Structure formats: C-alpha cells, structure tokens
Amino acid sequence: MIRNDWTKEEISEIYHKPVLDLIYQAATIHRQYHEPNEVQVCTLLSIKTGGCPEDCAYCPQAARYHTDIKVEKLLDVQTVLQKAQEAKEAGSTRFCMGAAWREVRNNRDFDKVLEMVKGVAQMGLEVCCTLGMLTEEQAIKLKEAGLYAYNHNLDTSEEFYDEIISTRTYQDRLNTIANANKAKISVCSGGIIGMGETIEDRIGMLHTLATLPEHPESVPVNALVPVAGTPLENQPKVSVWEMVRMIATARILMPKAMVRLSAGRVRMSVEEQALCFLAGANSIFAGDKLLTTPNPDYISDQEMFQVLNLKPRQAYKNELTESLNV
C-alpha cells in the first residue's frame, strides 16, 4: 500500500535495519512495482551556466564562490535540440535542462526555454527542467509546451537547510513543488548526502518527501561531489553503504517512484553501483557531465549495462502502462 503518513520513527527504524535485511526488503518491494533489470537513462544539460545569485554551499555555479566555472548565457534553441538528439541516439529517454537561475522570470529567455521544451518533447523524449523557483502560471506554460517533469530538490532536511543555503527558504522549495503538482507536471525531488548533515537530517528529508500529498515521480539521491572554491570543498567522500541505505529507504517509502542514482556515481565502481540497483535505484544520469560536475561517460555505462544485463526503460512508460490497464 502506498503511504503518505510515515513517521520519522518508522523511517528511522527502516534506515537502521541490518544492511542486508534492508537491501532485501527494498529489492522485494522494487520487484513488486518495477522491472528489476530496467533502468531509466537520463541526460542533464546545463543550458545556462554559472553566475547564480544563490549561495548553495555545494554549488560551483554560485557567483560568490571562486571556482573555475565560466559564466555562459542561455544556449540557443538549435544547440539544445541537437544535444537532445545526441542524447536520444546514445540511449537516453529523458532529457533534463538545467539553468543556473534563482527563479524563472517572464522574459525572452523563458520563451526560449518553452521552445526548447516543445522541440525536445516532439522527439519523443520525456522532457524535464530545473530552472529554480517557479510560479503556478509559469508551470502551466511549461506543461502546455510539453514538459513532463520538473526537478526541484529539497537538498536536505528542513532543520539543516539553513546551514547550506540562506538565499531562499525550505518553504520556497515546497511551494515550487506544489506549483508543479498543480500544473499536473510530475515532480523530481531528492537531495544530497555528505554535506555535514546527521543521519537524522537524512531521515528528515526522506520524511518530507514521503509525506508530500503525492510522492515525487522521481527521487534523485546525490552523493556530494566536493568542488574546490565552494564551502564544502573538504567534505569526505560518502561511503557506498550510506548511499545504499538512502536508496533502499527511499524505495521502501516511495515504492512507485523512480529512485535515481545521481551525482557521485563517477567515484563508484560497477560493483558499488550494482549494490545501489539491487537496493532499488532504477534511474541514472548518463553523459560525462552533470551540469558542471564529472559523470561516467556513455561508453562506461553501456559496458556496465552489459555486465549487469540491464536494459534502458522506455520513455513515457507510466502513461503507456496506465493506458493499457484502462
């Protein structure tokens, strides 16, 4: 049964189970709701890089930090559509466009993004955007252009949030998620571990996601990739067991969601990634960059898929499944 009334105590009990029992429970639930050998392959493109006014402590695109990221204006529509076509040919079925904005503004750049969304949707790809804060009216425009999903991560727990970001509130994030939901856009929302948070903070973030009126369609679990010049540049590497616990707990709490093994994958072996898939992850980002941080290239992922006998999930599978069940 899908539940939206989880308590933090229940989530803590799940998270702290003996790890092999936790993986077994998550794998069992995963098989009830998903094809166990199917993984959604997504591509994330930075369509507007750097110069962001926010102060997210993990992000090399914040204007106030001295990183080696060069500020670039919004890409032109044809360049983005070419990148989407290349991603499709390489096996991706979801294409996500990220802009280093604090919020969406009603201007020519937003009009261009709407054109990009239309063009990518016409290719048969699930199209996703992550553009910062969003009003309900803007969400409706994106939906009408063909947007399938909107990414807006919570990043961490409400209690730890102020340690990471001061330029917007936790409620701002929840409002954007609500606006996407109202526009009937599927929500992609997760967070990052390894930023100095406690286990209770991780449980708190999962609690917020799992008690939303509707679970996110996609839940990215990121391991911090420390970047020189950001406040978190010296954070230690997250262990695979921490990732496994987060992924398995997310899978148990939100059975229908796509749980995405996201940032940090470049520092994981095939064996470690296989553990994450066993624990319930069924989505990855492909391509050698996640916005501005390193990621395994397409060739490495194709080799991993062959070794693990994984197959890419087709686009719009949820809709196809629902239409067949009618």
Rank of each mutant, 00 (worst) to 15 (best):
R102P: 00
V104Q: 05
E159G: 03
V120F: 06
T156W: 06
W101P: 11
E137Y: 14
A121Q: 12
E144R: 14
V117Y: 03
G146M: 10
I140M: 13
R102M: 09
E159F: 00
N151L: 12
V120D: 01
E144P: 08
A139D: 12
M123A: 08
E103W: 07
L134E: 07
A145P: 09
M116D: 03
N107P: 05
L142Q: 09
G146A: 13
E158S: 09
A139K: 12
D111Q: 15
V120E: 06
T130V: 00
G124L: 04
K141P: 11
Q122E: 15
L134M: 10
E136I: 09
K118D: 13
V104C: 05
T130A: 02
K143W: 10
N107F: 01
R105K: 15
G146R: 09
D155L: 06
L147V: 08
H152E: 07
T156P: 01
M116I: 07
E144L: 13
R108L: 10
V127D: 03
N106I: 02
V117M: 04
L147W: 11
L142W: 13
E115F: 05
T135D: 07
I140W: 14
T135E: 09
A139R: 13
Y150L: 10
R102V: 02
V117C: 03
Q138T: 11
E103R: 15
E159S: 06
C128H: 01
T130Y: 03
K141S: 13
M133G: 13
R102L: 09
N151V: 04
E115G: 09
F110I: 04
M133D: 13
E137R: 12
K118I: 05
Y150H: 06
C129Q: 03
E159Q: 12
